[in-house]
């Protein structure tokens, strides 16, 4: 390893496995692929909430982005608390798991309440009224978080998952591996729940035809609440991952990922769970590759363009819609 002028001990310390050649094209591509997969996983989790809720009550839940942000906040609070009482150093994995559970439970609790207050009374009204109520709820929640938690970024403890693997010049951090594998587990779990259990069947039935499901004694109110809860729980998990990945959370962090996740849900076919997963991954990849190869400044635009394009050319999405179309 040639000694460069600044390789003096008190100036700069480079890791031992440094190779001083530039990344070649293939490695650049793989690196961006990994980045895109991580981001796409988070979008997929948020998109699932949108798609399931739209499937049962045909409402774009604008407040879903705020469930994502709330999850991030509660995760930060829980992790800070555990660090404060000293458990973090001895049992980091247990603390992390506990934080995930706490955040997911909190957001499920929040979502069920929000549904009962702002959406349930408006089910008989026009779509516009419910949409406006959702918008109002989104503003209300994000500002509520700002007032209770402050306007500054809330910092996540950074001692977790600090290492990384280096394959040549491609780097996969432990954190990325954790996020991708956790996302995969949650998606598999959801699939099992929806397609292999009785409750899942009830959810699918309510999504397909509410009136008929009520006739066969499926309590649609309970199912709708359950859908909200599960969706919000997944968003909360995504929120914690986001906080760990980027180092901090903020009260307005739900807005832009929320829209992109909705774009993902639409891309995959609204109401369609597998579609939402695939849509999320695609949107994440497009954003990262667009930023890496085309333009980093306009990267938010790519998701919006996909959204508009899909809705114009193929409104049913990639995998087809799955909503209650018996409602007039």
């Amino acid at each position: 390893m040639r000694l460069l002028p600044w390789h003096k001990p008190h100036l700069l310390v480079r890791p031992n496995n440094l190779k001083l050649r530039k990344l070649n094209t293939m490695e650049y591509f793989i690196q961006q692929l990994i980045n895109g997969l991580t981001l796409g996983g988070m979008y997929a989790l948020i998109a699932l909430g949108y798609t399931m809720v739209y499937g049962v009550i045909q409402l774009i839940n604008f407040a879903h982005g705020e469930f994502f942000a709330a999850g991030g906040y509660v995760g930060a609070i829980a992790l800070a608390y555990f660090a404060g009482i000293g458990y973090m150093d001895s049992h980091p994995i247990i603390c992390l798991t506990a934080s995930f559970m706490i955040a997911m439970a909190y957001c499920a609790y929040l979502a069920v309440g929000v549904e009962k207050i702002a959406y349930k009374p408006l089910r008989k009204n026009s779509r516009l009224a419910a949409l406006l109520s959702a918008l109002g709820m989104s503003i209300f929640l994000s500002n509520g978080m700002m007032l209770t938690q402050g306007v500054y970024d809330k910092v996540y403890p950074g001692e977790l998952f600090q290492g990384r693997f280096d394959f040549g010049m491609v780097t996969i951090s432990y954190l990325q591996i954790m996020i991708v594998s956790l996302t995969a587990c949650l998606l598999v779990g959801l699939n099992l729940l929806v397609f292999k259990t009785k409750i899942g069947m009830a959810m699918r039935a309510t999504a397909q035809d509410k009136t008929m499901s009520a006739l066969v004694a499926i309590g649609s109110n309970k199912i709708i609440s359950l859908t909200f809860a599960i969706g919000a729980g997944l968003a909360a998990a995504a929120g914690i991952m986001y906080g760990l990945y980027y180092g901090s959370v903020k009260y307005d962090m739900g807005f832009v990922p929320g829209i992109k996740a909705f774009a993902a849900a639409v891309l995959g076919g609204i109401g369609n769970i597998t579609g939402a997963m695939i849509g999320g991954l695609i949107i994440g990849m497009v954003e990262i590759f667009g930023a890496g190869y085309i333009s980093s400044e306009y990267k938010d635009v790519f998701a919006f363009i996909i959204l508009i394009g899909v809705l114009y050319f193929k409104p049913n999405g990639i995998m087809g819609e799955n909503i209650d179309d018996t409602r007039v």
């Binding site: 460069l4 990344l23 650049y28 010049m169 980093s296 990267k299």
Partner: peptide, 24 residues
């Protein structure tokens, strides 16, 4: 000489570019 937006959170694409360039 690259640009990001004020308020961006995800810099992985730009940083991968920087890694590829491997400047001092």
């Amino acid at each position: 000489h690259e640009h990001v937006n004020q308020g961006d959170k995800d810099f992985s694409a730009i940083l991968t570019m920087a890694k590829r360039a491997n400047a001092d």
